[in-house]
Nucleic acid binder design. Structure first.
Lengths: 212, 212
DNA sequence: AAACAAATTAACCGTTTGGTTAATACAAAA
DNA sequence: TTTTGTATTAACCAAACGGTTAATTTGTTT
């Protein structure tokens, strides 16, 4: 499966200026955030004159906004796809955890980027959600309710369960530096730890909710 | 229990200039991050001339560093205290989840602040950990190993379990704006949701690991 | 090849930034 | 009261910032 979230955003050739700016800006914004990023650094990263950033994107905030919006939408589109898989609930959980962990592992900047920027400016997501209602989580919630009424899993608030599953996946990615320090992981140890989680998280969740 | 992480940092009177700068800086840095914060805004918040910030703390980075270090240490000191409670494992989990959730709820800026700033500069924590080895999590890991060998809980990697428990607590706090948007919470709905979690997370975890 | 529009650049601009300084107010010691 | 060290301020500064502009190159159309 192609897990790279950003293949060719603007459907333009690799040498296209706008595309190069976009990718350079993404890289810098991901690493340094809106306030920490410098327009000059983005221009240098793209190998292009700084004036071009404004020529194509008007302002720093507009440039940032278009990147944030695409990242956010793409990230939740992927989540929605996984969540909508046509599988029985327990298998879907296994499927989701494994693929979602791999997704955020291969785009490990994204979750911290989104959480961090939303924390500094919570308004930004509201405009994005207003445009296009992402209601895939409703499917998952219905799955859960059905499984409860069928006696497949114990009664549990579907919202709590969803937050549990997603949190178990995202947290160790977002908190990587702390985990590595506190649990004495080197890069390989950390990778193994996450690899283990692909099975462990599903096991952990299913163990908790399954009725024999 | 006094859950406010920052009662009187420098053990000085409320009107003390250094203390006022410190608290003003904390407030601004928490809300806007290192790069987004302005020295002038901190000075205004403290009701004090900007030159005083440099008089007491030399530079923006030093001021930020001292706040970050104190927040970080205090936060993990609290975590260590909870984790070291003298209780049987399953009761300790209940105790921990309830109190840890209350702690981060009452200091809700801290987790996102720490995660966000570490993401932008992972080096910063290393110096803090070098000073003072925080090894309270070892106690918890031993508890888990013992409980496994006694047949109280199923076999599970203690590190995975710890990350699960902490992640289940922290994630919904850090991701509050997204949760509120996606799950249609208003402020009260969100608070209820977290209040429910104080019992639900412990139930979820214990259900998953307990052997009848 | 002439004309025109789009893309690109170097140089520039006003503002804001973290930080400094020199002068002053304050308080305790002499 | 004079002295002395500390606390505080207004004014200032150089550098860095996001953004603009005017001129030039490039590519396309006629």
């Amino acid at each position: 499966m192609d897990n790279n979230i950003h293949p060719k955003t603007h459907e333009k050739a690799d040498k296209d200026t706008e595309y190069r700016i976009f990718e350079a800006a993404r890289k810098v914004f991901h690493a340094k955030g809106l306030d920490g990023a410098r327009m000059q650094e983005i221009a240098d990263e793209a190998g292009i004159n700084k004036a071009m950033l404004h020529y194509y994107f008007r302002s720093k905030d507009k440039l940032f906004g278009s990147i944030f919006e695409e990242d956010f939408k793409e990230f939740f589109k992927r989540l929605a796809e996984l969540i909508s898989a046509d599988l029985p609930l327990l298998e879907k959980i296994e499927f989701f955890v494994e693929n979602y962990l791999e997704l955020i592992l291969q785009n490990s900047y994204i979750p911290a980027f989104i959480l961090s920027e939303i924390h500094h400016n919570p308004e930004r997501i509201k405009n994005i959600f207003l445009e296009k209602g992402i209601k895939a989580e409703q499917i998952f919630m219905d799955d859960i309710k059905t499984a409860i009424s069928l006696g497949i899993i114990r009664p549990i608030d579907p919202k709590q369960l969803i937050v549990n599953i997603i949190g178990l996946c995202i947290f160790p990615i977002v908190a990587k530096p702390i985990l590595c320090t506190m649990l004495s992981f080197d890069e390989e140890g950390y990778r193994n730890f996450i690899e283990e989680r692909k099975k462990e998280v599903a096991r952990f969740v299913i163990n908790s909710i399954k009725i024999n």
